[in-house]
């Protein structure tokens, strides 16, 4: 048994030139757990996610998985996948080509089975041969979700995955996301500025402001006992 199963972020800082975007953040995501990082725009939450994924260099601190330091492991070897705000589907591949991208090297039959299984999971049966350019915004995000889960990542990082969609669709997709993550038991870090998404999805919520972690708590505790004025004000005003 490892000492600290899952993701551990220890005092991580991310800088852009002289600007410190993430300032000594410490956070953990346990097996099967969904943790939301909630903060206003510019709070550094996307930078934190990118640093965990390996897309941004860390100037201080370390990132570990099951106690093993992965801070300098290249992106493609970390086994963490990212679902981006606008999907970033590959325009030159079909839906099936996108979903199966991470399954390169597996036998064709297995690949096809897995793609079909995932498309069914996100409610897009039979969409495999379609070009991704013909999808609606909501469909594209569902394909992006299926693609991220295809290779059974050890951790899924979601970067505001629903914020480019309209409200009604967002409410529906939060449910799809939540059910899919629970069904696959995928641990996830969910970055958002929308507290209703965070409260609907997360086991625990981390509130980030100006690069600093203000509070980490389960939704009920957070609502009942905000750690300070800033957290209370942020939760109050964006409801």
């Amino acid at each position: 048994m490892v000492e600290r199963p899952g993701l551990a972020v220890d005092g991580v800082s991310v800088a852009y030139g002289p600007l410190l975007a993430v300032d000594g953040v410490t956070l953990a995501v346990g097996p099967g757990e969904i943790v939301a990082v909630l903060g206003p725009s510019g709070s550094g939450k996307s930078s934190l996610l990118r640093a965990i994924a390996g897309l941004e260099p860390v100037v201080a601190g370390r990132v570990t998985w099951d106690g093993e330091d992965v801070t300098s492991v290249p992106v493609h070897q970390r086994g963490f996948t990212v679902m981006f705000q606008d999907g970033q589907l590959f325009p030159h591949y079909t839906v099936a080509g996108n979903v199966g991208y991470a399954l390169a090297g597996r036998p064709r039959a297995e690949r096809r089975r897995r793609v079909d299984e995932l498309l069914a999971l996100v409610g897009l049966e039979g969409f495999g041969p379609r070009p991704v350019t013909a999808l609606s915004g909501g469909q594209a995000q569902r394909v992006a979700l299926a693609r991220s889960l295809a290779a059974r990542p050890r951790l899924l990082l979601l970067d505001e995955p629903l914020s480019s969609l309209d409200r009604q669709l967002r409410e529906h997709l939060v449910t799809v996301l939540s059910e899919t993550l629970r069904a696959t038991a995928t641990p996830a870090l969910y970055v958002t500025h929308d507290q209703s998404e965070a409260f609907a999805l997360a086991d625990r919520i981390a509130v980030l402001d100006q690069g600093k972690l203000l509070q980490v708590a389960d939704p009920d505790t957070l609502r009942a006992h905000p750690a300070n004025q800033t957290v209370a004000a942020f939760l109050g005003q964006s409801g």
């Binding site: 994924a53 390996g54 897309l55 290249p74 992106v75 493609h76 070897q77 970390r78 086994g79 963490f80 996948t81 990212v82 981006f84 970033q88 590959f90 030159h92 991208y101 991470a102 390169a104 693609r147 991220s148 295809a150 290779a151 990082l157």
Partner: peptide, 27 residues
């Protein structure tokens, strides 16, 4: 070419050479 397409490929486990072959070249 949107650099985030390359990032997406890398997070899906593609090595730099595969990112180049499957994202840069088709584009």
């Amino acid at each position: 070419l949107d650099p985030r397409l390359r990032e997406a490929a890398a997070t899906l486990g593609a090595r730099p050479a595969r990112v180049f072959a499957t994202v840069d070249l088709p584009f």
